[in-house]
Design a protein around this nucleic acid. Structure first.
Lengths: 110, 110
DNA sequence: ACAGATACATAAAATACTTATGTATCGATT
DNA sequence: AATCGATACATAAGTATTTTATGTATCTGT
């Protein structure tokens, strides 16, 4: 995902957040959106993204709609009802993660 | 390290930070300190910690002093000069990580 | 006609951690 | 004196996530 190890484990929450914000997105669009949002700091690799999309679809968290562009196919993903719950849970987990890091890295502020 | 995947990649920065704050620490002490600081939220496992300590020592980032407690041995680790640089670098990386996540999860505030 | 962008996909390797297990000492309790 | 939980080290197998590399194919602008 990136030069820094820190982003490991963040791809799923990022993906869920983007789908929540944007309704439906396709893979390539997601990679571009993240690059844009982070001014190039974070680059989602396709090798990480596509398998994740497939897994989350298999788990019923995402659903797919195929769309034809002339001769190409585009696969739009969106959150299912279960996916929306999972997204909310994921955000709570992220909050907790941030708070925990605060406790270690900014003990004065705690 | 924890139930959440998010902490992956954080162990090294946490360790370096603790050693910076406390001068020198031994493995078991580190696991207890993290548990204490985070009120039990984050538990460093020994299976993750000890190999990391060994690796960082091999890389010249940490140095060890053995200490005898009666019949037991305790291994105190501290940052080398190179380790101090690495610690500083690691904190900058963590800041950048936090800022990048902001851009994705709190786009309004950016 | 070609290069670079768009758009999907997978497989092997690397990485980082979890889980399980092992050894051994120490202190407190029964 | 025996047992248990805490202290203190260590490693190995398994799992999960991501990187790197590779592949296919279309579209767009030059």
């Amino acid at each position: 995902m990136n030069k820094s190890n820190l982003y490991k484990g963040c791809l799923e929450p990022i993906l869920l957040k983007l789908l929540k914000e944007n309704g439906r997105m396709y893979g390539y669009e997601i990679t571009q959106k993240v690059k844009e949002l982070t001014a190039g700091e974070l680059k989602i690799t396709e090798g990480a993204l596509y398998p994740l999309l497939h897994r989350l679809e298999a788990e019923g968290i995402l659903e797919v709609e195929m769309e034809n562009l002339g001769n190409r196919v585009r696969k739009y993903y969106s959150l299912t009802a279960s996916g929306k719950k999972e997204q909310a849970r994921s955000m709570i987990e992220l909050e907790s993660f941030k708070n925990t890091l605060q406790l270690i890295f900014n003990p004065k502020l705690a």
